[in-house]
């Protein structure tokens, strides 16, 4: 269960963003909609523990994120939140499997080789395990980043514009993948988008 309470953030340049309260139950799937510049990314960054808000609190299963010490927050994020960025952002010097293992190592968790393999297989990229990121297509890269976000069995999966750089077919597949994988892994899901192709797949929306 995730709760966002009277959040507000003020940027250095003086721009002020206010966010309505938001409650996300276990395994619920939400769309975060809003015009560009409305603060979607800011809100996502705050919820994922990357950006400390000027005001308000984020509670994930009862843990107040911004009450944790810096190291504790890093660790909490690694273990409980899976993030999928607009761009895949894989480590280019490591192959696909190593990129998944990195997620476990950085969060201080043991490596589960079997799970990594089966995640890749579920996402249809099982035979790319030993490839390097620059050998993959955009769609394949995005799948790898979904797999990486799921490695540590997170409680919350956050995707920021996951379809913006994909064609219709790939976009469709990625959304389906996100919703089914979130369900299969018991994670809540937030997808931030202004992409009309995504809207049909999810019912709950949070509008900025």
């Amino acid at each position: 269960m995730i709760r966002v309470n009277s959040l507000a953030h003020v940027y250095d340049k003086g721009r002020r963003l206010k966010f309505p309260c938001w409650e996300i139950g276990d395994m619920e799937q939400w769309l975060l909609l809003g015009a560009s510049g409305s603060g979607k990314s800011t809100l996502l960054n705050i919820i994922s523990g990357l950006l400390k808000p000027s005001q308000g609190a984020v509670l994930i299963n009862g843990t107040d994120l911004y009450n944790l010490p810096v190291r504790g927050l890093d660790r909490f994020r690694g273990r409980h939140i899976g993030i999928i960025f607009q761009r895949p952002h894989l480590i280019r010097s490591l192959d696909v499997l190593d990129n998944l293992e990195l997620a476990a190592v950085m969060a201080g968790l043991p490596i589960d080789h079997e799970r990594n393999r089966s995640l890749l297989a579920d996402l249809g990229i099982g035979d790319l395990a030993k490839n390097y990121p620059d050998q993959l297509s955009q769609g394949q890269l995005q799948r790898v980043s979904v797999a990486r976000a799921l490695v540590n069995k997170p409680d919350l999966l956050i995707a920021d514009e996951p379809t913006s750089s994909l064609d219709d077919e790939n976009a469709n597949q990625v959304i389906k993948m996100l919703t089914t994988q979130a369900k299969d892994n018991g994670a809540a899901l937030i997808i931030a988008t202004h992409d009309a192709r995504v809207r049909d797949h999810l019912t709950k929306t949070y509008l900025l």
Partner: peptide, 16 residues
């Protein structure tokens, strides 16, 4: 910077 930001994102601490 990107690699390191990702690693931070995945739970690595600054000292690490």
């Amino acid at each position: 910077k990107y690699d390191l930001a990702i690693m931070r994102c995945l739970g690595a601490s600054k000292p690490k």
